[in-house]
Nucleic acid binder design. Structure first.
Lengths: 107, 107
DNA sequence: CCTAAATATAAGTGAACACTTATTGATTAT
DNA sequence: ATAATCAATAAGTGTTCACTTATATTTAGG
């Protein structure tokens, strides 16, 4: 009855530091060292958060020499969208807003 | 830089029991005793979860005599939708899917 | 009234979690 | 070779968290 993917995603995004890292990655691929420089937590902490995000399917990594580059995996957010969509009651109330959002988007 | 509402919502939905309770409420208002009967956790646990959901703005309560009825607050999901919408990269990839979802919805 | 029902709150407990420092492994540069 | 850089893992720690049982509070019913 409980979706594992769903659970991992919600848990992954529940932490503010992890959300900040994820949001940072939406602005472009970044190496661990870049993220470590950006945030006020240790390098291992960053790596641990990235592993959690990766296990949740929200990011992917790519190794190049000594550096590990992480980027957002856009399809990873699917379970979250599906979860919201499943509860039509919300959408019904927010349909207007949603359409508005869609219009504002680039093609 | 960190939205409190956002944080409360993600944290509230990170727990499977709490998500199950919330999902149950999307099918209609329910009293604490009903939810306690539905799930395999103690009544205090249910009350605590409901308080968390309430603090996150996801549900509202209504007292009638001895019973406390809880219902979903549809506008409560707004910060979550806003968060997703804010990261257009995701939406761009899933625009097709989204439009599909919107079409399937009742007017 | 007095009891039962419904809920919330208090207090305690074990597990999960978000960090830390130390270390290891691997790659690049001198 | 050797040293430096980058990242992951190990291990430890304090806090948060999701439960539990026990208790208090309010309301309904015999």
């Amino acid at each position: 009855m409980v979706s594992v993917a769903e659970d991992r995603i919600f848990k992954a995004l529940a932490d503010p530091s992890r959300r900040a890292i994820f949001e940072s990655l939406t602005r472009g691929e970044a190496a661990v060292k870049d993220l470590t420089a950006r945030f006020d937590i240790s390098q291992p902490a960053v790596s641990q958060h990235l592993t959690t995000l990766k296990d949740a399917g929200l990011v992917k990594d790519r190794r190049e020499g000594r550096c590990a580059y992480y980027r957002v995996e856009p399809r990873g957010i699917k379970p979250l969208i599906d979860w919201i969509a499943h509860h039509r009651v919300f959408w019904a109330e927010h349909l207007g807003r949603l359409e508005q959002l869609l219009e504002k988007m680039d093609p």
